[in-house]
Design a binder for these strands. Structure first.
Lengths: 114, 114
DNA sequence: CATCTTACATCGGAAAACTATGTCGTCTCC
DNA sequence: GGAGACGACATAGTTTTCCGATGTAAGATG
């Protein structure tokens, strides 16, 4: 499997958007988020725990997501399930637009015409 | 003029690509690069001198661009004109592809289906 | 000659992601 | 039931890199 990984710097400034978008449809806990992002990007974004958890704390502190420990049906230790808050949903919309402007601006420089 | 500016973090990891692409067609010096990037992005990317010059030095050290002081026809102090090297042209191609993969990966997460 | 402008340069700070490591509960296996 | 393995969460320290502030020098301007 040829899965070129990203430049760590490429992720900067876009991680929050990725996390909010991942939580858009349903609540998730850490391991699920890592797996989902990896699956949705064909392995391009390979989040590390040291990247994910501080980011989740940042988003929670901002009030965009809410974490709650839950016992999973399959047993095991309780996991911290994060849910997108209404504020987070608004933020997701804004960050999507901000990313669109970013992508459009990059196109303006590297794409020539597109 | 409503020119929403980018999150500083959004630039990280993409600056080199922008600079290489700006120099693709013709050599440029600092002030021109700032103006060109600003124009090509409708003011979205507003490079600062403290951002640009260290970046140019980084690219020059990598052998992707070559700087040479030149006297402009219109007079004034000599300016340092940077030219894309053959190696830099190869690097530009690679960084373009890398950006495409990045953009595609982001779409995979935030675009849902697109 | 004094001042202003322009271009180049650099230092210190801040933000954020990564590496490495640690802790705590469960579960498994003997 | 005890020992180790494992999974999930957590965090300290390092690195990268962009930005704000500031400095220097050459020429233009009056």
């Amino acid at each position: 499997m040829n899965t070129p990984t990203m430049n760590p710097q490429q992720l900067k400034g876009h991680l929050d958007l990725l996390l909010l978008a991942t939580l858009e449809d349903s609540p998730r806990y850490g391991g699920q988020i890592i797996a989902d992002v990896q699956a949705a990007t064909d392995g391009f974004f390979n989040l590390r725990e040291g990247t994910l958890y501080p980011a989740l704390h940042r988003l929670e502190k901002a009030g965009w997501i809410a974490g709650e420990f839950q016992q999973l049906p399959r047993g095991g230790s309780p996991v911290k399930v994060y849910t997108l808050t209404p504020t987070g949903r608004t933020e997701l919309r804004e960050q999507r637009e901000k990313y669109e402007r970013f992508a459009h601006a990059v196109r303006g420089v590297i794409g020539g015409s597109i």
